[in-house]
């Protein structure tokens, strides 16, 4: 069970390992974008960890990186076309960041550092833990940015949103801009580091 929660705090991919920052900064404009991106990343992460762990003894060391890239790219392409077919609004909203999951450091990093050396069940737990940590990080950033920057909370792409009256009337626009993403990320990384120090004591 300890392994399941490592991605949340001690090894949170966004706030502690500082991985996957590009999508975390770019798509965290609305909560619905963050949920969609997290779900897509989680599916790819679980698929790649499972496949790489399953075939780790058959893939020679010299070709492991190209082999992993092919596996990850296949899973990302599958997720991309499934989203285009069944969730076009989310697919449009996330745009280029879905194909770019291929180069997300969390996925290749976990494949190389964990799935290639561990059993199927441990790799599955690792993917779940890291994916969950990425989700919590991304949704937290998006929640703060959307709440302060627009005064709304959007849970469904192109759907209705919850309006928070005082903030919606006077939004702090910087939070909906890229600079706002960096500010929120900085404060949250600081908070997680402080939390790490407190826990060690």
């Amino acid at each position: 069970m300890k392994g399941l929660f490592k991605g949340l705090l001690n090894e949170n991919p966004i706030f502690v390992l500082a991985l996957g920052l590009c999508p975390a900064l770019a798509v965290s404009i609305t909560v619905s974008n963050a949920i969609g991106m997290s779900a897509a990343t989680l599916v790819v992460l679980m698929g790649s960890n499972l496949l790489i762990s399953l075939f780790r003894k058959q893939i020679p060391y010299d070709i492991h990186i190209p082999a992993y890239i092919v596996i990850i790219a296949t899973l990302v392409t599958a997720v991309d076309i499934i989203l285009q077919a069944y969730s076009p609004a989310l697919s449009k909203s996330l745009g280029i960041f879905i194909p770019l999951i291929v180069v997300n450091c969390i996925i290749l990093g976990r494949a190389e550092a964990f799935a290639s050396k561990n059993t199927l069940s441990a790799s599955f737990l690792d993917a779940l833990s890291m994916g969950f940590g990425f989700t919590v990080g991304l949704v937290t950033i998006a929640f703060i940015r959307e709440l302060l920057g627009s005064g709304t909370i959007t849970l469904i792409p192109n759907g209705n949103f919850i309006r928070i009256p005082p903030l919606a009337d006077n939004p702090v626009l910087v939070f909906s801009l890229p600079a706002g993403a960096l500010i929120v990320m900085g404060f949250l990384q600081g908070f997680f580091r402080w939390l790490g120090v407190v826990r060690k004591r």
């Binding site: 909203s93 909906s176 801009l177």
Partner: peptide, 10 residues
């Protein structure tokens, strides 16, 4: 249909 950047071209 487009692949523009979220928050900018989008």
């Amino acid at each position: 249909d487009n692949k523009e950047t979220v928050g900018f071209g989008k």
